[in-house]
Nucleic acid binder design. Structure first.
Length: 587
RNA sequence: GAUCCCGUAGCUCAACUGGAUAGAGCACUCGCCUUCUAAGCGAGUGGUUGCAGGUUCAAGUCCUGCCGGGAUCGCCA
């Protein structure tokens, strides 16, 4: 069954149709004027403009149709042609009951499952795992949870940055610091040591060093390019060293992902495109899609209609090495054969928009995967309070692991202050603190509009008050507590009957889940789900304060309110799950 | 220089893609725990939506021009 907005839309749409107008004008949505209505429709004015008719007459006809529906308690035309509807209590009650019994908590079913590939292209072997990587991981995870919930067949790929010039830089920087290692001796025949000569910390130091040196020193840059080409050509020592880099990175990354509760189906990287590169190059050259220009093989992807200059797709650079243009296109080939996705989402920093535009165009030109099946899910960067990219007080980047640790510690302190841990096992206190901290981190990030930059403020992150993840957990935990007590006292849920304003508001809020889910999926914007979760929790908190539930004397009212609570808990936990947040039993 | 994005309450952000009186949180001021978890609830203060024009019944949202900030612009990812 559809949500109430959808049901009303059906009625209004049919009414528009009966007037010879587009049924699409009948779209009903929650009213911005709760004092006037539960739902509104603004289509009469747009329809009137299109058909050159009187908007109020159209609205009046639609209102008449709405009044005939048993969903509707009252309907009116207002102002230039707004249509205002107030729902009958019966409609609201029925919808709450339905939501309560629905394993999907009121979310719409999905008709035709698609194969969706999600590429988390944020992490990089050479670069430190700092908080800037939070976004691709958390946003991508939310999207994979949501798309699975919608019934899509999803494969997620961490897609590590482990190929290209940065690897050459790491190799020669390691060689500079530890020149005697066997990896650099071309005559060495192996076997190479099984223990990595560098640690995670080394890697985090080496790349910035090498990168800075390359900026100043042309010969150093040339050496890095040579090393890159040699690595890609298969020089055994470089390959062996490179495998250590990747392994060390992967172990660190697995730790971060375990902390964040994020799972990938595939742990592939740019280097996994390697087997497809020779074929890719050969194919594009043979069909003369790639052309030689300034010593490099490129694909021209600019179009007449472009308002800006679109640089060519770079297949092979003048050193004979490939960069991430080629590996991304190679990966498209790989995925087409292994999974054949209907849709591929690249959850990557907004600054790489041009890169993806180039790759998608090249894919389209080559006839591999049409550009409309490839989508860059860009996101904004995290800035400090000064509006510049976030730095710690010491001026360095804040490592993701340190952020998580700090947040968990702050949550622990907060628990202690509130005297909540008393009588609980140490393990449960730890679990609660971790959940609170993780919820704070994820909600703070996801509740921002995906595409815009946002200000990262550590104090706000750790405050746990107001519109935060912990607020949502708190609401859920209060519901769980009620449910536990109800079970202990043998109170059974019964038919819902919304009477109080707080009950109506909560019921309407529950109905908004369907719209939040489909809208988030359509726009790939998790902040919409965050808003829904917050609105729902807020509506519950107001209801909780305004209406006794288990303390209610009237048995029928008590049973109905318990049902409302159960439906809310079910949907709130479902919503939180979609944004990667899990709730403790108490806090 | 060109292209794109952003500019909304003191601060951090929304605003369902053109709708009614622009909403939340933080901060500040009041009130609410002998009754279901006060990490909470209720009320209040706070706005010329960067500026100036334009389009129309209606503009934070669309078009033009400025001002301010950011990103990107072939061999780094």
């Amino acid at each position: 069954m559809r949500d109430l907005a959808g049901q009303l839309t059906d009625v209004a749409g049919a009414a528009f149709g009966a007037l010879g107008l587009e049924p699409g004008f009948g779209a009903m949505r929650r009213s911005d004027r709760p004092d006037l209505a539960d739902f509104q429709c603004n289509g009469a004015m747009a329809a009137a403009k299109a058909a050159r008719r009187n908007p109020r007459e159209i609205a009046d006809a639609v209102v008449a149709a709405l009044r005939a529906s048993d969903l509707v308690a009252s309907a009116e035309t207002a102002g230039p042609g707004f249509i205002n509807v107030r729902l009958s209590a019966r409609a609201l009650n029925a919808r709450v009951s339905e939501t309560l019994e629905d394993p999907r908590a009121g979310a719409p079913d999905h008709a035709t499952p698609r194969r969706v590939m999600i590429d988390f292209g944020g992490w990089n072997v050479a670069k430190p795992m700092h908080i800037g990587h939070l976004r691709s991981t958390i946003i991508g995870d939310s999207l994979q949870r949501l798309f699975r919930f919608m019934g899509e067949t999803v494969v997620s790929d961490v897609h590590l940055g482990d190929w290209g010039l940065q690897m050459g830089l790491l190799i020669i920087e390691t060689a500079r610091e530890q020149p005697d290692l066997p990896y650099f001796d071309a005559a060495f025949s192996g076997p190479y040591p099984s223990v990595s000569p560098v640690t995670m910390e080394d890697l985090e130091r080496l790349y910035p060093q090498a990168s800075a040196r390359a900026k100043e020193d042309e010969t150093w840059r040339a050496a890095a390019r040579t090393a890159t080409a040699e690595l890609q050509a298969g020089r055994p020592g470089y390959r062996a060293l490179w495998r250590h880099f990747c392994e060390v990175t992967r172990i660190g990354l697995e730790r971060e992902c375990a902390d964040l509760g994020v799972k990938f189906d595939l742990w592939k990287g740019e280097s996994d495109a390697e087997p497809f590169i020779p074929e890719l190059i050969d194919d594009l050259k043979r069909r003369e899609i790639a052309v030689l220009d300034e010593g490099a093989w490129i694909v021209r992807v600019a179009r007449e209609s472009d308002t800006r200059e679109v640089p060519p797709f770079l297949l092979v650079n003048r050193d004979g090495a490939v960069g991430y243009h080629a590996t991304d296109l190679g990966t498209i080939l790989d995925r087409r054969r292994s999974f054949n996705p209907d849709l591929t989402l690249y959850v990557v920093d907004q600054r790489q928009a041009l890169h993806f535009e180039q790759v998608f165009r090249a894919s389209e030109i080559a006839g591999y995967t049409p550009a409309d099946r490839l989508e860059h899910i860009g996101f904004g960067t995290m800035n400090g309070r000064d509006g510049k990219p976030f730095k710690t007080r010491e001026g360095g980047v804040l490592k993701l692991h340190d952020l998580i640790r700090q947040a968990r510690e702050a949550a622990r302190v907060r628990l202690q202050e509130a005297g909540i841990g008393e009588g609980m096992a140490e393990s449960e206190i730890g679990l609660i603190a971790d959940r609170v901290a993780d919820a704070a981190i994820k909600f703070a990030d996801l509740s921002n509009v995906r595409t815009t930059n946002y200000v990262f403020d550590l104090d706000r992150f750790l405050s746990f008050e107001g519109k935060t993840g912990p607020y949502l957990l708190y609401a859920a935990v209060r519901m769980k507590s009620l449910v536990r007590r109800a079970r202990e006292d043998g109170v059974e849920p019964g038919p819902v009957d919304v009477r109080l304003e707080a009950e109506r508001t909560l019921a309407l809020s529950l109905d908004g889940f369907a719209e939040a889910v489909s809208s988030t999926a359509l726009r790939r914007m998790p902040h919409i789900l965050c808003d829904h979760a917050y609105q729902l929790a807020q509506a519950f908190s107001a209801f909780y304060a305004a209406a006794p539930i288990l303390a209610e004397k009237d048995e029928v009212v008590r049973a109905g309110r318990l049902s409302l609570t159960l439906a809310t808990l079910n949907q709130l936990e479902r919503t939180l799950d979609l944004i990667g947040i899990s709730t403790p039993e108490r806090m």
